[in-house]
Design a protein around this nucleic acid. Structure first.
Lengths: 118, 118
DNA sequence: GGCTTTCTCAACCGGACGGTTGACAACGGT
DNA sequence: ACCGTTGTCAACCGTCCGGTTGAGAAAGCC
């Protein structure tokens, strides 16, 4: 799974991982701190962080034996851009269909939109 | 996996599924039409559509034996809201840290931010 | 009534995923 | 020098996922 968009989306598809992101938005934290609230092992959280890191959502620096985890904001833009594009298109299309329907006072049968006008 | 956000994110974590969404943004399409470009079976695409439908990204109506697939825009807002929240928080935090660093001419040692002041 | 088209359901397969346990590397405290 | 803390790596396990094939439901065409 090479492409960055897939990595980001699938990283955020996990509730625990989303929760971690939420908490990192408040402030950096160590792995142990992050693991505390959940009843899973530290190793599991470490794995989650690796996923988030590979997706570019998070970076880990070195500070003595601690590894503070930091939320990286830029990657969000990648998603936002993708989403916005298609959301806009879909809404536009919806609006246009609405116009078509309004401009069609005697809706009879036959297939309405979509079909090639030939 | 009950929660809606997880469903949407993981639905969009697949490139094929994202591609389908992209094409549906242009206009509704049938399963066969959607399957054509890919070298997978129609069944596989049907499965993808089920995933997208369960995520609320897509709706399928009945029109004779055809099942036109329609892109649903509202769910995008769910994601956008989630993303925006944490992106904003992260950026804010970044800005604030920047201020702190600028207001700290004689950075010596001791742990800077984050540590419990005890 | 048959045949074709369109699509879904069910069963199966290999690979990825989330979790565990166990070992160990790296560093600080005393 | 030793121990404790912090964190990762490796191997394993059950489940989910994306794909296949095969069968069948639902509707139009002739």
């Amino acid at each position: 799974m090479a492409d960055p968009l897939s990595r980001v989306f699938s990283a955020l598809a996990d509730p625990t991982r989303r929760d971690i992101v939420a908490r990192l938005a408040v402030g950096d934290a160590t792995v142990n701190e992050l693991a505390a609230p959940y009843d899973v092992t530290v190793q599991a959280v470490s794995k989650h962080l690796k996923v988030l890191e590979d997706a570019g959502l998070v970076s880990r620096s070195r500070e003595a034996q601690r590894r503070p985890v930091h939320l990286e904001a830029e990657v969000f833009d990648l998603m936002t851009k993708w989403i916005e594009r298609y959301r806009r298109q879909a809404e536009e299309r919806y609006r246009r269909l609405d116009d078509v329907l309004r401009a069609m006072p005697d809706a009879d049968s036959a297939e309405p939109q979509e079909g090639s006008p030939s």
